[in-house]
């Protein structure tokens, strides 16, 4: 009885396959669990999107105000204060890390004290202290320079000191861990070649510690982008404050918070990609082959997805 619909070739009429005998052609494992979890996750996601679409949100306002002039100015201020504070934090971090590891008990104690204070108090409190410094020192007198404190301590400076000094304390610990992660044999080999302490630090120790320093520093910077919203406390006109100002006049409180969130997300996303390439750069020599770039990864993910669908 021959059925025309039966496409499965019988053993008799199968063409002789040109396959070496040792190539395995197994039936792949069916991952039913993956299917179930995917369906559940997609359903939850759909419900969430639906809820927000139905909510009392004026999406037009969100898209409208996204590129509003004052929002963009606020965005610029957020980027500026974050980058400058991070730069200050990095410089202070390296400085205090080296001081902390120094054999001189005075310098290492000073570094310990700095880290203890600026890491041990909330950054919000530190911002307020800088902002209100005029209450205890009405006049700033540096000997060569004299002025009213209120004139010197602008919102920008207060924000910079608050965020930068706080960041320096965290970075000092990160850099110290990085320096200590480098094998002592490296320092010895460098000294044995006639390199000075400074050359050894700059050419041998710091480049190697970068691999340990960069990932947490990336986290620090992402944190900084978000923590910088605290500078509202010192009257600095950042992204959040600009959004709130617009909200106050247009009565679109949630909408403007969405606008701010979208920009914060955009900033952190762009930075994460940059961080990835930075890490790749400093992984040289430590891995036999470099990890794939995101593009290469997306490609291979798509490939494995097609396997997954089978």
């Amino acid at each position: 009885m021959t059925d025309k619909l039966d496409k499965t070739p019988g053993p008799a009429d199968a063409a002789p396959e040109q396959v070496p005998p040792d190539i395995i052609r197994a039936i792949p494992v069916r991952h039913y669990g993956r299917w179930v979890s995917a369906v559940v996750v997609v359903a939850v996601l759909g419900a969430l999107v639906y809820a927000f679409a139905q909510g009392n949100v004026r999406w037009a306002t969100v898209t409208d105000k996204l590129f509003d002039g004052s929002i963009l100015t606020g965005l610029w201020h957020t980027i500026l204060i974050s980058v400058v504070s991070m730069a200050v934090g990095l410089i202070l971090g390296v400085l205090f890390a080296v001081m902390r590891l120094s054999k001189n008990p005075v310098t290492s104690s000073v570094a310990w004290l700095y880290i203890w204070f600026f890491r041990g108090t909330p950054v919000y409190v530190q911002l307020l202290i800088w902002f209100n410094l005029a209450l205890i020192f009405p006049i700033l007198n540096l000997g060569f320079y004299k002025d009213y404190m209120t004139a010197v301590m602008t919102p920008f400076l207060a924000a910079l000191l608050g965020l930068g000094l706080n960041e320096g304390a965290y970075m000092a610990e990160i850099v110290r861990a990085g320096i200590q992660s480098v094998d002592e044999g490296q320092t010895e080999a460098s000294h044995a070649l006639g390199m000075t302490q400074m050359q050894t630090m700059r050419r041998v120790v710091l480049p190697q510690s970068m691999r340990v320093i960069i990932p947490p520093t990336g986290n620090e910077f992402i944190n900084m982008l978000k923590t910088s919203s605290l500078v509202v406390a010192v009257q600095y006109q950042d992204l959040l404050r600009s959004a709130q100002d617009v909200a106050a006049t247009s009565f679109a409180v949630m909408e403007m918070l969405f606008v701010a969130s979208i920009w914060y997300l955009a900033l952190t996303s762009v930075f994460s990609v940059g961080q990835y390439y930075l890490e790749r750069r400093f992984a040289r020599g430590s891995l036999r082959s470099l990890p794939p770039t995101p593009l290469q990864r997306i490609k291979s993910n798509l490939l494995s997805l097609s396997h997954w669908r089978r």
Binding site: Q186, L193, G285
Partner: peptide, 16 residues
């Protein structure tokens, strides 16, 4: 130290 070369048991090459 410039004039004295040293070779270590664990090589201590600069990995970067």
């Amino acid at each position: 130290r410039r004039d004295i070369g040293m070779v270590f048991q664990r090589f201590n090459l600069f990995p970067h």
